[in-house]
Design a protein around this nucleic acid. Structure first.
Length: 953
RNA sequence: GGGCGGUUAGCUCAGCGGUAGAGCGACGGUUUUACACGCCGUUGGUCGGGGGUUCGAUCCCCUCACCGCCCACCA
């Protein structure tokens, strides 16, 4: 006997274990021989992470697809794993070390720090996976991967080396987005623009050869800037070539205040006459636009900051070399050196003001780029970094989508994809972090033959770069490169390298020691390989052959650029095929009011709390039911409670079936049923299955969920089981047997079609109903075949619709006439035709029960003072003499008559419109004619009913 | 500056060429042995404003308003 309600908390772990024991989620489990494959790779969550609502949605949708296809007998693989999440993880562990007041990462050194992270990962890295399991995610957990596994790391190294060989990865010195807090370069995508209320400072730069006087504009040129502190690195002033205000100045020079640098006034179209003063200061080392201007005009690039974003000019030869030494410069250096950029800004402004160079300050709203992790303004910073030639890789990836080999659902995301891919910039992949895939590049000194007279510049060795997959390979390469008589080694650590370097610089040339690039790769570099690296690439594994390319990628729009685009590029480059056929892009989960959930806002809804309260099934169903395409999900917890109620409803339907001996019959053939209600519910099921399949095929999860919901609650529970009661409790044993078998059959099919949405409760009912009935199920539900749709009996639909309408109308009138619920009243059917007579006979017991009718009489004429209900060709009368208020009943009928007249009038107007008849499609016209007939028939009966009341009154 | 999306019942949302639906709520009734996490009934909407296309528009087009997101180098 089933418990009274479904106890999710108790059942879920038990069911999870049953699946585990059955190996139900293993790749290919339950697949039919020769079945096609269905593959999804999970968007790997960060190891640092814990399950948030976005994960819950993402994985629910994947799980629905995967479970359906598995039940369809396909060879299914859902490949799970986690991402090492470079910056995020490093930050988390560093924070933890700080909280515990342990020595920082720089103090303990790289190796010890990495050990700490690995230890941390071993301890808490499994959290998110366990949470996914609680949600019911049917991944093949035996195949779980981590982006820093040896296998995946090997894939990363190979990709790096191959791309380098092809010239698609290269080292370049250019401006990067530098995070002065995290001390690393970041990619364009990791920069967020923040609206900031700042200022626009207008500076006067004195023109060389004029005697500066703030009163005489001819003696200076005014530039406007939002970043005064960078003026220390200015190397030009640019004006627009067509700007007549300034043409006479082009070619002349200004003397940069505070530092005394002589810099040219150049003409460049970058300068916008509309902005500021129309003249713009150029700081090539600290601004992306200025960098380009500097390139065009061959301007020097003077970096005036260090990695922390503090002014660094004291021993900076680039800064000092061109400057005449004087007192002002010394003062500037004293004031500025070592100041962070924000303090330096204040000091520059103050100094400029003191010397009469500050023309004005305007308030100015603009966007300032910030690091998405650190939250501090990023600094355009001149460094050497590794770049991927994204434009080259993007071109086939664009073609794949254009030519339909990969399709986005919903389709409008393709525009977003194109827009970004077609304007893609070189991808900066090196990060100055420790946690991640260390770049497989080693540096050695330049070849001795090329040393020439000055082998060492500014204490820096000119470098030779060796890129290789292993130390073995790199040694081999280096030995081939350097003269035979020189020994080559790889530095074990920084100290060893520095010791050697000192000797080498001083002429000790018998040995060369290579030093590995200390940087690691952008986390997304390894994620880009996920669809094939997880399957064993670069080895030609059977899994790789079988499961690549994958069927569909399910992910959020926020990582189309970060991840989807890059997987497309890498998949095409290394596998020669698109990594997935479809890309289903789902929405963001927001809070009830539509705000993005965030810790700082404190509006985060924890999916696990909802699971605890309502069960995983309820949460999953909610997310699926709300996953309409192209719209964010505003999650109201009340909604989850509603779907928990749905689970309870199903549970109780199963209890009812059990209590009434509804047991699955092995060879049951639903299409041979005789009872109308049975033929009807089977038809309705088949109709539901067809709609469900259609919705799923189009990734319309909300439609799919709602179709099942309505069938279970509004068809099976609300009506079918109620209709079945009199038969199940009646004496017709044949009808009873058929109805029992049908009720059990429908329940079984419900469990199947609901299983992808609510796996736990359905699996539990699948086994418990069988156990109660003493049936042996050959398989867990997760591996049971998905039903096919089949016969639909249209007449049964019509008959049951009539029955439903009749019962509903009677109930409605009863309430309206204030008939007490408890009292049973007689029903008279007036002047019934053959059809009505037959139907009444068939469903007499059901009508009596559901409408609380004491007896049904077939009569020639409607009894006096009765409420009359018109359903199709049937006129049903509730003889309620003394109970009903005749005038109220007359009003009711009158209202209905008017409504019918209105409807008919509306249709007549349509049909009377020549344009409509000429232009509307035939079926629409036909539909209107049919409706008109229907309304008229009904109108006649209602009018007659009204007539009868009027006559008597 | 460019692009995308939204505006439908009190709330959260479906629908997207033939005059509107769900869940939650509200109101009234109901403890009838599957289920009060239930059952029965009722209420509730000029589908953001304006224009156009069409025989017909919540649905297509234009426009305005407000809200949200993405991208972009503007001093």
């Amino acid at each position: 006997m089933l418990e009274k309600t479904f106890d999710a908390a108790a059942v879920e772990p038990r069911i999870a274990e049953i699946w585990e024991r059955a190996g139900a989620f293993k790749a290919g489990a339950g697949a039919e021989v020769g079945a096609e494959t269905f593959t999804i790779v999970i968007p790997p969550p960060n190891v640092t992470g814990s399950l948030h609502m976005g994960h819950a949605l993402n994985n629910t949708l994947q799980d629905i697809l995967v479970r359906v296809e598995r039940m369809r007998g396909k060879d299914v693989l859902w490949q799970p794993g986690t991402d090492h999440a470079g910056i995020a993880t490093q930050m988390v562990v560093e924070r933890q070390m700080m909280e515990r007041q342990e020595p920082g990462r720089r103090e303990i050194g790289r190796e010890a720090f990495l050990e700490t992270i690995w230890a941390w990962k071993a301890e808490s890295g499994g959290t998110i996976v366990n949470q996914l399991k609680r949600l019911g995610a049917s991944c093949d957990w035996s195949r779980e991967r981590f982006t820093m596994d040896e296998g995946l790391s090997r894939a990363v190294r190979k990709v790096f080396v191959d791309l380098h060989k092809k010239g698609l990865i290269y080292r370049d010195k250019r401006l990067v987005n530098w995070d002065p807090k995290l001390l690393t370069a970041i990619s364009d995508l990791e920069v967020v623009q923040v609206e900031t209320k700042g200022h626009l400072w207008h500076f006067r730069y004195p023109i060389e050869g004029e005697t500066f006087d703030p009163e005489y504009p001819a003696t200076f040129i005014t530039v406007a800037t939002t970043r005064p502190e960078t003026m220390l690195g200015d190397t030009a002033v640019a004006v627009h070539p067509d700007d007549e205000r300034y043409t006479h100045l082009v070619g002349r020079h200004v003397i940069l205040p505070l530092v005394g640098r002589r810099i040219p006034i150049v003409a460049d179209a970058y300068s916008d006459p509309e902005k500021g003063s129309g003249a713009v200061k150029i700081t090539p080392a600290h601004d992306f636009n200025d960098f380009e201007v500097g390139r065009r005009h061959g301007l020097p690039m003077i970096n005036v900051m260090n990695a922390e974003g503090a002014i660094d000019i004291a021993e900076n030869s680039a800064f000092l070399d061109t400057l005449p030494a004087n007192d002002e410069l010394v003062e500037t250096m004293t004031l500025m050196h070592g100041q962070d950029r924000f303090m330096a800004r204040k000091r520059v402004v103050a100094q400029m003001d003191a010397r009469g160079f500050l023309a004005k300050i305007e308030p100015h709203a603009h966007t300032v780029p910030h690091g998405d992790r650190s939250g501090v303004p990023i600094e355009p910073y001149l460094t050497d970094q590794w770049y991927v030639d994204a434009a080259t890789l993007a071109s086939p990836a664009i073609a794949s989508v254009r030519e339909g080999r990969t399709t986005f659902v919903p389709k409008n995301w393709e525009n977003t994809y194109y827009q970004w891919m077609e304007n893609i910039q070189p991808w900066c992949v090196s990060r100055q972090l420790w946690w991640g895939h260390q770049i497989p590049a080693w540096y050695g000194p330049e070849h001795p033959d090329r040393y020439g007279a000055a082998p060492i510049l500014n204490g820096q060795l000119p470098r030779e770069i060796f890129v290789a997959e292993s130390e073995e390979d790199v040694l081999k390469k280096a030995k081939e490169f350097y003269p035979n008589d020189i020994e080559v080694e790889i530095a074990k650590d920084e100290k060893e390298f520095q010791d050697w370097r000192k000797k080498y610089v001083h002429g000790g040339r018998e040995k060369i020691v290579l030093q590995r690039d200390p940087d690691v790769l952008d986390t997304w570099f390894s994620s880009a390989l996920w669809p094939f690296s997880t399957l064993g690439w670069p080895d030609e594994t059977p899994e790789l052959r079988r499961y690549y390319p994958t069927s569909v990628l399910v992910t959020g729009f926020d990582i189309i650029f970060f991840w989807v685009a890059r997987m497309m590029m890498m998949g095409l480059e290394f596998m020669g095929t698109e990594p997935f056929k479809d890309v289903y892009i789902h929405a963001l989960v927001r809070d009830e009011k539509g705000a993005k959930m965030s810790k700082s806002k404190g509006n985060v809804i924890d999916p696990l709390e909802l699971v605890d309260e309502f069960g995983a099934d309820a949460l999953r169903f909610t997310l699926a039911a709300m996953a309409a395409q192209g719209r964010d999900i505003k999650l109201a917890p009340a909604r989850v409670a509603g779907y928990r109620n749905f689970a309870t409803k199903l549970w109780n339907a199963a209890r009812f079936a059990e209590m009434n001996g509804c047991v699955s019959v092995g060879d049951f053939e639903p299409q041979t049923s005789k009872e109308t209600i049975n033929r009807w519910i089977v038809s309705s099921l088949n109709d539901t299955i067809a709609q469900l399949n259609f919705a799923l095929a189009g990734y319309r999860f909300n439609d799919a969920a709602n179709v099942v919901y309505r069938f279970v609650w509004n068809q099976y529970c609300d009506w079918y089981l109620e209709f079945a009661k009199p038969i199940l409790q009646g004496t017709d044993s044949e009808a009873r047997a058929e109805t029992r078998a049908t009720a059990a059959y429908i329940l079984d099919e419900i469990l199947k079609i609901l299983h992808p949405f609510m796996p736990f409760i359905t699996e539990e009912l699948w086994r418990s109903t069988a156990a109660e009935a003493g049936i042996v199920r050959p398989n867990v539900l997760a591996l049971t075949r998905w039903p096919t749709d089949g016969f639909v009996d249209q007449e049964a639909f019509e008959e049951i619709n009539w029955l439903v309408d009749l019962v509903t109308e009677i109930r409605s009138v009863r309430v309206e006439m204030n008939v007490p619920v408890a009292s049973q009243i007689p029903l008279a059917i007036a002047a019934a035709g053959a059809l009505t007579r037959a139907r009444v006979e068939t469903h007499r017991a059901a009508i009596e029960r559901l409408a609380r009718i004491s007896a049904i009489d077939l009569v020639d004429n409607a009894p006096p003072a009765s409420a009359q209900i018109v359903v199709g060709e049937t006129v049903a009368c509730l003889p309620l003499e003394g109970v009903i208020d005749v005038s109220a009943e007359r009003a009711r009928l009158g209202k209905e008559l008017k409504k019918l007249d209105d409807e008919v009038g509306r249709i007549d107007a349509k049909l009377g419109n020549a344009q409509f008849v000429a232009k509307a499609p035939e079926e629409v016209i036909e539909e209107n004619r049919d409706k008109r007939e229907e309304y008229l028939t009904r109108r006649v009966k209602v009018a007659e009913a009204l007539e009868r009341l009027t006559v008597r009154a």
